[in-house]
Amino acid sequence: MPDTYIQLAGWQVAAAAALIVLNAAISIALRLELERRLLIASVRAIVQLLLIGLVLGWVFELRSAPVVAGLLGVMTVIAGVAAVGRSSYRYRGDWLNSIVSVWVSSWVVTALALGALLAGERPWYEPQYAIPLLGMILGNTLTGVSLGLDRLGSELSERRDQVEALLTLGATRWEAALPAIRAAVRTGMIPLVNSMMVVGIVSLPGMMTGQLLAGVHPWEAVKYQLVILFLIAAATALGTLGVVLLSYRQLFNRRHQFLHERIHHNE
């Protein structure tokens, strides 16, 4: 750890937490009726982070391959399920498609990154690298997957007549679904492209900020951030494409029929 790093004392964290009073004051003054939710959210944030701190402390100490793999697996499944939960268009089996897409895309990209980063000199399950890398990739892939799923569902539901019109004219299922597939994959990838456009200008990304706070030289922090950014881009693209294609297979059968009744819209 570089010697410029300042350890936080408990009272300093508590002082920061007290700032939530400001939010509460705004909520009360403007009658936003957010006080209760603010309280719950604050408590949840504290409890969740303390818990993950405990778990990570334990995992970092153990340095055991099965334990690290188990934690990575749990993180992946939670990301896959959360991606589906954010979509307002659901169909049976969507969570499985989501988990598979998130799993394959994030693990393939993380494995490549760990292989290149650790170059065989350290074990892959080095928690200091494997957990934060996969965590960052999952967080972004999850957004892409959920946006892609939601857009595919809305395109196919709202343009059902057009999809069927193409089928009636002799389109294959692929030809009929292609406009919706394109829109969905595009929607899943756009937030990342947008954030890459302004990275470093409007905001400093979280990981880079963390490294700077830990006393790492800015140039090193930038190099790490660039690598992470491109890893995230690749995993998001793969995950979004994966979930959209798996959903397409579920919603169009081999007889080139659009199984529209499988899609349910939750307001």
Binding site: Q162, A165, L166, L167, T168, G170, A171, R255, H256
Partner: peptide
């Protein structure tokens, strides 16, 4: 057969009651 459905629909064209234009 499943793979012949698009060709079949090119020969037997259904026009929906509510015109579905792109």
């Amino acid at each position: 057969a499943a793979q012949d459905i698009p060709r079949f629909r090119a020969s037997v064209v259904y026009v929906q009651q509510r015109p579905a234009l792109l």
